[in-house]
Design a protein around this nucleic acid. Sequence first.
DNA 1: ACGGAGGCTGAGAGGAACCTGAAGCCCCCT
DNA 2: AGGGGGCTTCAGGTTCCTCTCAGCCTCCGT
Lengths: 222, 222
Amino acid sequence: MRLLIVEDEKRLALSLARGLTAEGYAVDVVHDGQEGLHQASEGTYDLVILDIMLPGLNGYRVCAALRAAGHDVPILMLTAKDGEYDEAEGLDTGADDYLTKPFSYVVLVARVKALLRRRGQGAGASPVHVHGDLKVDTAARRVFLGDDEIALTAKEFSVLEQLVLRAGEVVSKSEILEHVWDFAYEGDPNIVEVYVSTLRRKLRAGLIRTVRGAGYRLETSP
Amino acid sequence: MRLLIVEDEKRLALSLARGLTAEGYAVDVVHDGQEGLHQASEGTYDLVILDIMLPGLNGYRVCAALRAAGHDVPILMLTAKDGEYDEAEGLDTGADDYLTKPFSYVVLVARVKALLRRRGQGAGASPVHVHGDLKVDTAARRVFLGDDEIALTAKEFSVLEQLVLRAGEVVSKSEILEHVWDFAYEGDPNIVEVYVSTLRRKLRAGLIRTVRGAGYRLETSP
DNA sequence: ACGGAGGCTGAGAGGAACCTGAAGCCCCCT
DNA sequence: AGGGGGCTTCAGGTTCCTCTCAGCCTCCGT
């Protein structure tokens, strides 16, 4: 993880750099806005820590210029004293977060980690199950086949979920019934077949294999 | 954000609860120390407001017991008259802040916010959430869509906040109810739908997606 | 090859889940 | 005490799920 610190107070910059290096990040430091913009534009950083009061080009400008150029690197703004930071302007220019000096070192590290985590969260944090080109995100309740999102109803999703959770194993119809419906379900057990049929049509025929007399199995390898 | 008020003066408790509810917090009230300890031990509160003079078990005891049990929820102590509060004892038992009655409403709210903010920082939570052109600042309780600030009421904001905090995931109606209203909420669950409807009108229709049979999901990518 | 059990699937009735405009209530401010 | 804003309830309307049913297909044992 590479961080860029744009901060003109050399003592502070150095101390931050030292600390963040100790946390395991690769840290570069520049001392004015112009240089900061130039460096950050390389697009090789995972996060930019940006002071607002800077010689040359102030933090807002740097931030706005980066966004205008299409960079979506996370930006953490630093502001000298309470009130200096104009929240609306900060948000407008596209900063992701801000910290008011003086801040504790612990807080800074926490924010940096939070921003990096948030950024990396596109797919990582939620329980996502992948089997071949099938991707099932149980937190978002979304299903992808290759690049296409497949729209499933609540029951359809729940049935698929049962199969995915035990991918490669045979799951019996009664197990699916008990988990997706109720233990007390009184209806036609055929309902499971109906949903499997729908899933095959919406996804791909070969994905859910029937094991006669036993149940269904989600294929794990193509 | 869920708050617990432990206060035996019913009039005061009620008035605090009312005001804090208006600020957008979910508030529960209990009237004696025993019950307060019990409730707070559930660990579902983000902050506890604790009177010192209480029937059953006084505030110091409740506070100490909570800390002894490993709970680090922020605690704001209330004390009847100047001098009653023994600062050393309060700090010893692990309170985070205290207020001397009579206090103004504004001061109370400010302290509550400060404690919650402080906690949020330590945990690495960041107050600004950006998803596409939607920007939500949970500390300032402000919302921007593109360049325009959107005026939201307390409840509207709280509902949106729940969705933003888990952007991309499905949040069920009952989860929203429990966090924004109370566990004890007896009203029509349809209230959530009403607020979602309002948010869609004030923000943009496509932003909050209904996941039938499951809940709502804030869209993260266009 | 044949029969039967197990499995598949299209169609449609019925209803659950959801949306939203309207109206009442309550609190607070003037 | 009047008015306004926010919160909540309610009910009508709409969408689209769910489940049943019935006929057909497939597999397997004899």
